[in-house]
């Protein structure tokens, strides 16, 4: 692969970095990343990856743009209300960078299609808003040996982690063995989220993805970063691989992809 004159200009700020250079930029252009959800987290993820010249970007979302999304889902504009999020997203991403091949999946992600989808990509980004999807992605990444870049949001808080179970690391189930029981204290306030917090965590997911593709720095593997925007404090704790983990432990009980159902009201990232 040879960078064109235009690409040299477009990616000059990357190329200038000793850790990236022309070689790194070519890696990015050849990379294939799958972003599940183009909402609060997925919007900044997809925008930064497209801007960075991430060659093949798969995006999955079965929702349509709703007016209540626009406060934080920066890929979608007022004119997009009612459009499938994938279409709205592809439009913006292709305008931003025609180098990027954007592949859209408008259908729901299920236990039946997830492995086939994940198989096509190097890295999977979890920009979903619910536990069933998080488990589905975690399990699919485990079975297909893919790196998972996980993010989650709650009001003014966010968390971020990278799972490389195929390299001996912990998985999402080591951290959360079971779906937290619904109805402990769920209230409507749980749907509240400061839009820019989604942007912060999503942008950090993009950073981890780019590092992973470029193979630079230290990934946030076996570590959980939590952010509290109100105090603007960041904390990192270690995640230990659980030998009892039902998926990646010594005596696994989950031997294939299973379905998880969770009731949810209209709460999304």
């Amino acid at each position: 692969m040879r960078l064109t004159e235009e690409q040299i200009y477009r990616y000059s700020r990357h190329i200038l970095l000793p850790e990236v250079g022309g070689v790194g930029q070519e890696k990015l252009l050849r990379a294939k990343v799958f972003c599940v959800g183009v909402g609060g987290l997925g919007s900044p993820v997809a925008l930064y990856l497209a801007a960075a010249g991430l060659g093949t970007l798969g995006i999955a979302d079965s929702d349509q743009v709703d007016i209540s999304n626009l406060q934080r889902q920066v890929l979608h504009y007022t004119d997009d209300i009612g459009k499938p999020k994938t279409h709205s997203a592809r439009e913006k991403l292709q305008k931003l960078n025609p180098d990027v091949n954007v592949i859209v999946y408008k259908d729901l992600i299920t236990m039946d299609n997830i492995r086939e989808l994940v198989k096509e990509y190097d890295i999977v980004i979890d920009g979903s808003d619910n536990f069933p999807t998080r488990y589905l992605l975690n399990d699919a990444c485990y079975f297909e040996k893919k790196t998972l870049i996980s993010g989650a949001l709650f009001q003014f808080e966010g968390q971020l982690s990278v799972f490389k179970t195929h390299k001996g690391g912990a998985c999402y189930r080591c951290l959360y063995p079971e779906i937290p029981p619904k109805g402990m204290v769920p209230t409507c306030e749980e749907a509240g989220i400061l839009g820019a917090v989604a942007g912060t965590i999503g942008t950090m997911q993009a950073v981890e993805t780019l590092k992973e593709v470029l193979d630079i720095g230290e990934p946030l593997v076996d570590k959980l970063l939590t952010m509290n925007a109100l105090s603007m404090s960041f904390n990192t704790v270690k995640i230990t691989k659980d030998p009892e983990c039902h998926l990646c432990g010594e005596n696994p009980t989950i031997l294939s992809i299973e379905e998880y159902k969770e009731h949810s009201c209209d709460i999304e990232d």
Binding site: T187, A191, C265, I267
Partner: peptide, 8 residues
Amino acid sequence: EICPMTFV
């Protein structure tokens, strides 16, 4: 209304 607009 549907959740969370009910509480909003």
